[in-house]
Design a protein around this nucleic acid. Structure first.
Lengths: 374, 374
DNA sequence: GAGCGCAACGTAAACGTTTTCATCGCGGCT
DNA sequence: AGCCGCGATGAAAACGTTTACGTTGCGCTC
């Protein structure tokens, strides 16, 4: 048995069935105006007396009228929804990013359609197709499969889009990146400043944009700040175990590095484990640093020095960028933005200064090459 | 000036402008059939020859036709979208839940509209209103503000809904809970089995359903498994610092507990810190256990024994439940389901058995009280 | 061979909005 | 006094689908 609730949008008590959906017509009839006036009043488009607007609003809220989104979208060509396309990633990054996007989207009056956990380009393409027409704009976190060609082929033409962590320079989308380069550079500077010039680097997967940028930053920093030192780079894949293996490989070398800089925190944690097993004290015998500032970083012993990326802020900025694009239809989206990161000094790098210190090393920069058409 | 685009989906190679939207009419014209046939063919509703269907499909994909979702929703009354309403929570729980829901939703051919980071009932109500008509069903993770009254007032009538972690027994929604009770019970059993009968409990916030259930489980377990012991319960609020404070309070008491069981992992981490400062060895001097199995749990020293809840699976089950409800329109949704959890034995509880052992203690149970109408 | 049933297909209504255009009334100007 | 302009309002078209219903043609049965 359905539970009945009387709802009576007509004059007098009109007890009709339960799941009535009240339309703009009901409001119009009740307020003794035309549907056009109701639309105008509720959308605040003017062209209606303050008195009637008041009356209409009153009736609308009394009837609990809520406009039918689909009908509105049909004519308006706007869904008031943005999409987020994310690869298959777990944990903090995912949640913080969504959080940042969602919060900002809501403040723009937009909804968030999430499609996550995509595996390959095939999967992502399908998701993109499925979003076709359901969103006014889209934020794409790039992953191995999705590159310039992919976007060329799958991005619906004219759909405002923001690319996160990508090196594609497509004119079709704005790009927002973490300043991996500067972050790595700053950390190397810090380590060198501490007296550790013989720094080894554990790199991430080659098909990952962040990983490539971080390695580039490391190379540049070493060339500049520790010119004499031979480069010692061993490759990992961002996983804890690959970090562990990398550390073992480093320890097996003839000269032990003074510091190890892992391209992400999980690998640093793996290194830590390997050092512990080898009986090395961190940072006494060997210093260690990571990248990302995942929550775990502060709980390992010793707490891990790392480079923090403010993920929620990344999401927020992406959303702002997207909103910007959506307001400016027809204009080319091409622009590249960068979000700086902070280095977080804890114990693992050997700079004991009481508590942890945070230094903002890079700031948000924008290299806009916006070319307006029309 | 609006950008003009010529619309000419005529025969032959048609190099048209960029942002044309092709409708079902274009496909119909090109395939020399009526729009009705196109609709039938593409939706596989039959009533159309295999040959023409083939032709229509061919044309449709050649023109890259993708049906206008809003238009379809308008007439169909279906959005093929479900909503997820989540409070303001960070981290792993959030991402894993979304992940579980999204994955399963996609396999049902559904999209996922996320609205997260709600602060109070007011906020959540607004979000719920905003979702009105944009979703075919909704998953709600309950939080302090949202209780039976809230749902009564704000849940759109007849909208299939699944409530997560809630004790409301509204007939309007199915409920899916983590088996906190059994999880806590099992952990107490484990601790007692290890010889720690004098167990103290650090409880969570009183307005949190999980926290209440966990405390209830603890009380029940102690009553049954360590009948003589006086109950020692100090209250926390799920935060690390509250755990730290609770541990200090416990250590200040006259008799030191043999084990401390915190209602969540973050508080356990706080306890660990307090113990460390007090010079107590874990688990030598005092055993420790948590709840949730957050990633950090395995990285603190000693690694934390805890109760694992399979969050992604929770999301998946919620989605399945919802899909079920959506298939059965008009039927009462009332049913209560429970997802079991595993206890994860690491070092902090003093059961050194080499690696970590995982024991599934409770299984998924369903207490359905479904009453079908019509 | 006429009637009948059925499958294939087309026509048009309907969904709930927004928006253009027309209508109306009214005050101010010439 | 007539006209013009303008603000408030209503009528109706349009958006792109799905679907109920009508029409056609064809094969079958009597």
């Amino acid at each position: 048995m359905k539970t009945f609730t009387l709802r009576s949008p007509a004059i007098g008590p009109t007890p009709w069935g339960s799941a009535v959906t009240i339309t703009i017509k009901d409001v119009a009839r009740e307020a003794k105006v035309s549907v056009a006036s109701v639309s105008r009043a509720l959308n605040g488009n003017g062209g209606v007396t303050a008195a009637t607007e008041q009356r209409i609003r009153e009736v609308a809220s009394r009837l609990r009228y809520v406009p039918h989104g689909a009908a509105r979208s049909l004519i308006t060509r706007r869904t008031h929804t943005i999409g987020a396309l994310l690869p298959d990633l777990h944990g903090e990054f995912f949640s913080e990013l969504i959080r940042g996007i969602d919060l900002e989207a809501r403040s723009h009056g937009l909804h968030l359609l999430v499609s996550s956990s995509h595996d390959g380009a095939e999967d992502a393409a399908a998701a993109l197709r499925a979003m076709q027409g359901r969103v006014d704009g889209i934020v794409i976190l790039s992953s191995p499969g999705v590159d310039a060609d992919f976007l060329e082929a799958n991005l619906p033409e004219g759909l405002p889009s923001v690319l996160l962590n990508s090196d594609v320079k497509s004119g079709a989308a704005a790009v927002l990146n973490i300043d991996n380069f500067a972050g790595t550079y700053a950390m190397v500077r810090h380590l060198v400043g501490l007296g550790h010039a013989r720094i080894a680097f554990v790199s991430g997967p080659k098909d990952n944009y962040d990983a490539r940028q971080r390695e580039a930053g490391f190379r540049a920093a070493m060339a500049k700040l520790a010119p004499g030192e031979p480069l010692r780079i061993v490759s990992g894949n961002f996983s804890e175990s690959s970090g562990y293996l990398a550390a073992r490989e480093l320890l097996a070398g003839k000269t032990r590095p003074q510091a190890v800089f892992a391209a992400n925190d999980m690998m640093a944690v793996g290194c830590l484990q390997a050092f512990k097993e080898a009986g090395l004290a961190v940072p006494g015998d060997i210093a260690l640093a990571g990248f990302d500032d995942i929550p775990i970083a502060r709980y390992v012993t010793p707490p891990l020095s790392t480079v923090r990326v403010r993920i929620a802020e990344l999401g927020k900025n992406a959303m702002d960028l997207l909103a910007d694009l959506m307001d400016r239809p027809g204009s080319s989206a091409a622009s590249v933005h960068t979000l700086g990161c902070d280095i977080v000094v804890r114990d693992s790098c050997g700079a004991h200064r009481g508590g942890a210190a945070t230094t903002t090393t890079t700031t948000t920069t924008t290299k806009s090459r916006r070319s307006s058409s029309r």
